[in-house]
Each structure stands twice: as C-alpha cells, then as structure tokens.
Design a protein around this nucleic acid. Sequence first.
DNA 1: TTCTACATTTTTGAATGCAAAATGATCGAT
DNA 2: ATCGATCATTTTGCATTCAAAAATGTAGAA
Lengths: 221, 221
Amino acid sequence: MLHEEVVGRIRAILLDGEIPPGARIPERELCERLQISRTPLREALKVLAAEGLVQLLPHRGSRAAKLTDKDMRDLFEVCQGLEALAGELACERIMDAEIAAIAAAHADMVRHYRERDLIQYYRGNRAIHEGIVAAAGNPVLAGLYASVTARIRRARYVTPMTPERWAVAVKEHDAILNALQRRDGVGLAHILRAHLRHKREEVLQAGFAETEGSDLVPRIA
Amino acid sequence: MLHEEVVGRIRAILLDGEIPPGARIPERELCERLQISRTPLREALKVLAAEGLVQLLPHRGSRAAKLTDKDMRDLFEVCQGLEALAGELACERIMDAEIAAIAAAHADMVRHYRERDLIQYYRGNRAIHEGIVAAAGNPVLAGLYASVTARIRRARYVTPMTPERWAVAVKEHDAILNALQRRDGVGLAHILRAHLRHKREEVLQAGFAETEGSDLVPRIA
DNA sequence: TTCTACATTTTTGAATGCAAAATGATCGAT
DNA sequence: ATCGATCATTTTGCATTCAAAAATGTAGAA
C-alpha cells in the first residue's frame, strides 16, 4: 500500500467519525487493520497532524483532533474567504460545460430538497461547492479548501436543519448558480460568504462543540 | 530532538535554498547533520511534502519542490485571498497596541527604504504583513498563510526591485497602514490585493520560474 | 481505609536490519 | 563505436527491535 493511500484511509476513518474526536488512536489496531507496520502508520499520523486532523502529544500518543467552538468559527471564517476567492476566480475562468455540470448538480440538489432527502441534498450541495472551487483552476486553492472542509465536514454535513433554514439555503443556492451563470464574480463572492456565514451560525448554534471536556471534567454522581 | 524541531530545521534548510529547488534531498547526509536516524527524518520529509515544500517520488526519493510559473501564480492568488481576509478581520479585531506595533514596523521599513537597505526593508515588510495576519486573531488563517508564504518566500523576498516599483510599494504600504488605522476593512482588503498583484507581476516578470529544466534539457555545447 | 512510594507493564519514539526497487556499470552484439 | 542487455551497487520503503517514558497496579504506612 502506497503512502498516500495509507494517509487517505486513516483520513477517511477520522472523517467518518469511526474514531471520534478526542479519542486515542489505537496504533496497534490500525496496523492490523491496514496490514502495515507502525513505521508507515506513524508517518501517516504525522502528516494528518500537520493537516490538523490528528493531535500529537509527545510521549502520550495521538488523538483524533477535537474542535472547540473557536476552532470551528476560525475554520468557517477561512472557508468563507477561500470560497469567495474561488467564486471570483471561477467567474473569470469557468467554461460553459462546467457551468452546465454545476447547474445539473444544482437541479439534482433541488430535487433532493423537494424529496426532503438530507443526505442526498448534502451530496449535491458539496458537489456544487467543490465544482466552483475546481472551476477556479487553482490547485493550491483547491488543496487548502479540501483541507479546511475536511476538518469541518462532520459539522457541515451533519447538522440538522429547520425547514425554514433549509428553504433559505436552497434560495441562496439559486442565487449562487445565477451569479455563476452571469459570471458575476463579486456578486458570487458575496453570496457565498453570506451562505457560509449562515451555515456557521447554524452549526455553532446546534452546539456542535466537540469540546465537552467529557474526559477532563469528572462526572459527578 | 523533537519531531517538530526536525521538521523546522529541514524547512529552514529548504527555505534558505541550501538545497536548491529540484535537487535531491540527501537522506544520509541530513541524518548525520541532524544526528538522527532515517526514521524521524523520513517522517519529517513526509510532513514537508504535505506542506508542498518537498516532492516525494515513489521509490525515487525526495526532492526540494520546484515551482513552475503556474504554481507561483496560484500561490500568489491564494495569498491575496488570505491577506485580504486577514485585513478585513484585523480591522474588526485589532487592538490599539497592535496598530502601534505595526505602525512602528512601518516606520522602520520606510527608514530602511530611505537607506535603500533591501534586506532590512523586506524584514520590516514581512513584519507588517505578518502583523496584520496575527491581528486577524485566526490561527487557522495564520497557519495557512504561513504555509503559503513559506513556499513563495524565496521569490517574494529575493526579487530585485526597480526604484520606481520600490517607491510604489512604499506608497501602497502607506495606504495599508492608513486603512488599518481607520479600521477600513474593505479598503484594506482592496489595497492588499492590489499590493500583492503588483508583487506577483514583478516576481513573474523577473522570471523567477524555478522550472528552467536545467537538469532535464541537456546543455548544448 | 486512603495515600504514597515502588515495581511492573504498556506504549511511545527511534535505530537497525532486510527485501524490493531503481540506478549505474560492465560486457557482448551489431 | 554505439546500442542494448544483464548484473552489481545503491537507495528506498518497511518490519523489527530496543530503549526510554508513561501508565498501571500493588504493597506498605499513616
């Protein structure tokens, strides 16, 4: 198994929440599961630590990173900036075919919204945002975006939505597609920022905070 | 020696250009120099590869990353976005003391400009930009900024400047400080973007391209 | 009983050793 | 002489091993 594959598989395990935030990462177990020895596993963990998905404690092993409210706010803030930038660049560079693809994803997403299928809705949602980033034609940007969204993914695509909020989100997406089709970079950037700001409020209000200190504050009987 | 220290030292070696872009990274030599074995060295190289400073070729070792013109353009583009975001956030959050510190760095920089001391000028320049990013109060943003600037640092702080261009840059910095003092986030974002756009043109025009293919295209006698 | 000091076990972090792959060197053929 | 093939050497990637640090468990004293 190639190095990048090891990193990818552990990343998937973390993103799936199979190892919950704050939990110790069982080296031995992962070694058996991936059929590799500790050396390549530890290399992967160091890389994931650099990405912010894993927290290394010297002589105390590694844990799945736990995000505080502040972390989440910071990540959303940066994500807003990156998406806004991507939107502006995409409007300058996007090809008609790419717009068509995003429009298709949008239609899909709206259909899933009508069917109230949250999982599929989120899938389409993600395809749109990633499509815009891809259309920006900037691999560096795409890389940072991937790294930031990976860290907030659980929050972003797991938070439940009120019917009102969901309707607003769909409306915002209409505006996003519209701005993209008009290649209105500045407008798109603004809409994306607002869209993510709303999402952030939602997530934080839902009290996603992974810092319940459950293993720090002893439970009182 | 701690893991992070190893990463830091190798990063420094790369940023200093001691191992030039495209050159093979001599594992054995670095091991002796840092007095460590291959295991921690290789862990560090994988981390630096994730950061984009090192290029790993499976079964062919690692090389110091070589930036194409496109890479450089992409990096500057993202850097613009990050600094603009930092500027906006900084204007919302910066404390008077921080503004004072940046104003001091600005004064320093202007003095070095008058003395035509490019090295010291760049140092002050960097302090200002980093000060703004720090004032944004977003560690995630600061981290990405550090990673992106590390990759373009050699270009950014090595390119020679024409007297005209230098004067313009200083003027732009006056505007930057002014916007910051007025806490004009939108204005600051615009100035920073323009400032970096100019810098990028400069760097690219200087033909910084690290892709001269000097080891690919044989020299014809 | 509870707290502390000590011994044991486990786990971490790093060095070494080994197999596979790539590089290059030598030799033969054209 | 040049090109290609085969073999030796080097280098890479990983498994294993070893030492040190931390966690755990136990026994003894207050």
